[in-house]
Design a binder for these strands. Sequence first.
DNA 1: CAAAAAACGAAAATGATTTTCAATTTCAAA
DNA 2: TTTGAAATTGAAAATCATTTTCGTTTTTTG
Lengths: 144, 144
Amino acid sequence: MPSNAPSWLEQLQAHGYRLTEARRAVVETVANSPRALTPLEVYETARRRYPALGLVSVYRTLEMLSELHLVQRVHQEDGCNAYLPRAEGHQHLLICERCGRAEYFQGDDLETLFVQLAQQYGYQIRAHWLQISGLCPRCYAQGL
Amino acid sequence: MPSNAPSWLEQLQAHGYRLTEARRAVVETVANSPRALTPLEVYETARRRYPALGLVSVYRTLEMLSELHLVQRVHQEDGCNAYLPRAEGHQHLLICERCGRAEYFQGDDLETLFVQLAQQYGYQIRAHWLQISGLCPRCYAQGL
DNA sequence: CAAAAAACGAAAATGATTTTCAATTTCAAA
DNA sequence: TTTGAAATTGAAAATCATTTTCGTTTTTTG
């Protein structure tokens, strides 16, 4: 899996943000994570690379990355405070309940459903959000 | 639309919870709401019926209703702190971006997608969550 | 290298939620 | 009914995540 981090840093720079050690540490942590991380988890992980990092910078950087649509919140039972890299184009999430690993997939077969709903309820449909959860092959093999 | 409140109160009682004025006020507020309410909104609304109500009781009652699967959190841009009644059986949500009104619909045409994903990624699929948003007919008619 | 602007982290402030606790209410048994 | 144990209450305190403030440091441009 190629790292997204260099591209993210370029995009931050292209939008007028400076490249700092704090941002590099946060970006590298989030861009390469196979699972959703909370701000605190990002902080703890990124501090291994850059111990002077402050939690505030994690929040600030996550907000920038959100604005640039490079990360997305993941919605889970207990809340929606964890962030994942956002894949190109329209994609949905498949998340392992046990280990948290996320897969991305295209699911464009929803169009017919939208047309039907638009007719039935008179809604102008603007957005949708589909998230699937289960057990990844490795966790399934381990039982539970 | 029939009120869910009596049934909810019965279910609370059936699970050993007592029926109190605080619970009645919260249950009637949430059970009859056409849109998702935050704990604070529940508090403000329910206090019109029962002014002595404390915010703490709102949180406690919402937690009970969650455990009994009578309410669900709604996931939105800014967070997922708002609650809606949960409909019978498996249902998805269609929510108006403007006024917040929620419609419930069945969407069981996702089975083929799940089978495909299970094969492709080796996942044991356990749950899914589909939420659609847009403008309801009334809000759409008002422009924006 | 110097200067201006941006960004930093620590600490304080805020806001939502949870816990604690003494007083009140509910409900089953008498 | 009445009664009393247990559940529940709301106020206040505590906690936890997030945001704001602010003096200092870092980055970038010239």
